[in-house]
Design a protein around this nucleic acid. Structure first.
Lengths: 133, 133
DNA sequence: TCCTTGATCAACCATTTGATTGATTACAAA
DNA sequence: TTTGTAATCAATCAAATGGTTGATCAAGGA
């Protein structure tokens, strides 16, 4: 039904998919190789149907794919979606850390010129670039 | 109310917190420096109360902290939580990629010995290590 | 063909989420 | 003290999530 899942939507689904310990457990298991729904359901105390739903969530998030093997339906991890998540996180984490390095430099050069250090940037809205790529 | 938020709970909250474009926008803005609720609410077409709730979600996830400045309450990014997320993701992404490298080696050494390549590992549960650290 | 296994579909239910409006707290300035 | 501003609290609501049970589909094997 969804025609054009925007970048936002894809990030929404992927982050949401990982916001559940069962689904993270499934990802952890799949990092070691493909598995069937029954195999994936085994460690958890919920019904197979519930696990099947979790796999659907992971699939719609692009984190896993399903193939066919007779009546089995092995689930495979797709690491590219994981990489997209770390890319998003690291982007802003690195901007934040760069800001701290710049602040350190500022403090190192203009030592003694106080009052700019305590909460520098509370209303520092210099360049308003795009929020999400 | 919550006494001991487990590692699972913390990951739950953090991933869930990022599964929303408004909250990701807030994180993006805070990567450039602290901001007040009003400043953070400005780009969005929702009420300040809604933004305040989003900030609470981010705060409970450990992604941001709030300080005091008279009647203002500047919000600061806490990059350590972001690092915890990339650590979790990269852990399993790297295991997955290592498995592919191993598979490549296997194919390189025993070329001609087929049938192990198509779906190697469908029931490969060698070592059952802990799912989450 | 009949039966078993693997997996999904469908309907339903309790809880949570995201948002709203209106009232209230906290602080500063007049 | 009164006024104004920043922010949260409280009550409410529609929609989504996570789980269940029961029925159904698909593919082999007896």
């Amino acid at each position: 039904m969804i025609v054009d899942p925007s970048a936002d939507d894809r990030l929404d689904r992927a982050f949401m998919a990982l916001a559940d310990p069962v689904r993270r457990g499934i990802i952890a298991r799949l990092s070691r190789g493909p598995a069937t729904v029954n195999e994936l359901a085994e460690p958890f105390e919920i019904t197979k149907q519930a696990v099947s739903k979790h796999i659907q969530v992971l699939e719609q998030a692009g984190l896993v794919t399903r193939t066919r093997d007779a009546q089995r339906r092995p689930v495979h991890l797709d690491a590219r979606a994981l990489q997209a998540l770390t890319a998003w996180i690291d982007r802003y984490r690195l901007i934040h850390e760069q800001r701290f390095r710049n602040l350190d430099e500022l403090l190192a050069t203009s030592r003694g010129t106080d009052a700019a250090a305590s909460d520098a940037g509370t209303s520092a809205g210099t360049a308003q670039e795009e929020m999400e790529s």
